[in-house]
Amino acid sequence: MERRNFLRAVVAGTSTTALSFTLWQGAASAAPAQPGAGPYGPLGTADANGIQLPSGFTSRVIARSGQRVGSTSYTWHPAPDGGACYADGTGWIYVSNSEVASTGGASAVKFDSSGSIVSAYRILSNTNRNCAGGKTPWNTWLSCEEVSRGYVYETDPWGAKSPVRHSAMGRFNHEAAAADPIHKVIYLTEDEPDGCLYRFVPSTWGNLSSGTLQVLKAGTSTSGSFTWANVPDPSGSSTATRNQVSGAKRFSGGEGCYYANNKAYFTTKGDNRLWQLNLDSSTYELAYDDSLVTNGTPPLTGVDNITGTTGGDLFVAEDGGSMDICVITREGVVAPFLRIIGQSSSEICGPAFSPDGRRLYFSSQRGTTGSSSGGITYEVSGPFRA
């Protein structure tokens, strides 16, 4: 929280002007998302797991740091962070990073068709502060190190193949990744108060071992056009990647990243913003900014990890705030979807939907204890709209 408050102080007093835009394809919104009644109704009283949910939804605990996962012999990692889901026959797999120093890595939980846990296992070991990451179209998990000159590791959710470190994707304070199958690139966020947004253009789509790292160039306003420029030295050996290209646009603490419908979305925690790249027109704008909320109190603060549904709704997890996951609907309304009670010293990480869209997985990184050893991973089931 101290780091987030610092980042907010960096941008305090900066005025912003938001231009009209269409939030999602076919949406009626003409401004950054505003508070309103969400599609699922109000939150109810906290359940036995301390989670407030709309009517019709239920929660269960999947794993706790330092304890065995279900009836398996596998001990769940500390500080669970970014995650993703993968189809596995009639079942599925949820992958989760571990944001701890030196031993970090990532683990996976496998479910059968009924949602019962059948196994859990390690897929990446002995890496450093694995924060967020991203799913690739070829069903691997990109696990990103949130340290100076950190790496991206490509891992196998099934644990059958050895992880691969991809130096060509740049060495910097990595946060999240999002794959764009149309332009055949990977977008990468950087968790620095003066960070940048990058894209990696692989030499061959589906093989990330070589390619070109580029940085987004744009003006200082909150909307406009953008271009991409090659980063001369992705290793950052003498000059940090963010400082190598004149005109690279600065973002205040890059966090989650998500791609859908020829748009890329990413969050910046220092100013509580959700940015939108319109990839067909090479323009950018704000999809949400808590300082631009004109209707009551901002429901979403502490923006962090992000995911979405096939129907076009976005789900944004809070680091701090009210410990909410908020929905930003395709109509441009932002509202709390769930709230975790009694865990104010934690953050919500790794939201990801099961392949059928009926279950949402996420973690409270430090749980009720406020320590990385107290992490809790949850599942919420219910009538999510398509």
Score class of each variant (00 low, 15 high):
Glu318Ala: 14
Asn295Asp: 14
Thr309Met: 08
Pro299Phe: 11
Asp324Met: 01
Asn295Trp: 10
Met323Gln: 13
Arg330Trp: 08
Thr310Gly: 15
Glu331Val: 13
Thr307Trp: 01
Pro298Thr: 12
Asp319Ser: 12
Thr294Ser: 15
Thr307Asp: 10
Leu300Trp: 04
Thr329Ile: 01
Gly312Cys: 15
Thr301Asp: 01
Val316Leu: 10
Val316Cys: 04
Ser322Arg: 04
Phe315Asp: 01
Met323Ala: 03
Asn295Met: 13
Gly308Met: 06
Met323His: 12
Met323Asn: 08
Thr309Ile: 11
Asp290Lys: 10
Gly311Met: 09
Arg330Val: 12
Ala287Trp: 02
Pro299Gly: 02
Ser322His: 10
Ile306His: 03
Thr297Ser: 12
Ala287Asp: 06
Phe315Arg: 02
Gly320His: 07
Ser322Leu: 07
Asp313Cys: 09
Gly308Leu: 09
Gly311Tyr: 02
Pro298Val: 12
Ile328Val: 15
Asp289His: 12
Glu318Asp: 14
Ser322Gln: 13
Gly308Asp: 01
Ala317Val: 01
Thr294Gln: 15
Gly296Asp: 13
Ala287Ser: 13
Tyr288Met: 04
Asn295Ile: 14
Asp319Trp: 11
Leu286Lys: 05
Asp290Asn: 13
Val316Met: 03
Phe315Val: 07
Asn305Thr: 09
Val316Asn: 02
Gly308Phe: 05
Gly302Ser: 10
Phe315Lys: 00
Ala287Arg: 07
Arg330Tyr: 08
Phe315Trp: 04
Gly312His: 12
Gly302Gln: 11
Asp313Ile: 11
Leu300Glu: 06
Val327Cys: 03
Val327Asn: 00
Gly320Tyr: 08
Thr329Asn: 02
Gly296Gln: 10
Ser322Ala: 14
Ile325Gln: 00
Gly320Val: 11
Leu300Ala: 04
Ile306Phe: 03
Arg330Phe: 05
Thr307Asn: 10
Ser322Trp: 02
Thr309Pro: 09
Ala287Leu: 14
Thr310Pro: 14
Asp319Thr: 10
Pro299Cys: 09
Arg330Ile: 14
Leu292Met: 15
Asp289Arg: 07
Thr297Cys: 10
Gly296Phe: 09
Asp304Lys: 03
Thr307His: 06
Leu286Ser: 13
Asp290Leu: 05
Thr297Trp: 05
Ala287Glu: 06
Gly332Tyr: 04
Thr294Arg: 15
Gly296Val: 07
Tyr288Arg: 00
Ala317Gly: 06
Thr297Leu: 08
Asp304Ser: 13
Gly311Ala: 11
Glu331Asn: 15
Gly311Leu: 08
Gly308Asn: 04
Thr297Pro: 04
Asp313Gln: 06
Asp289Tyr: 09
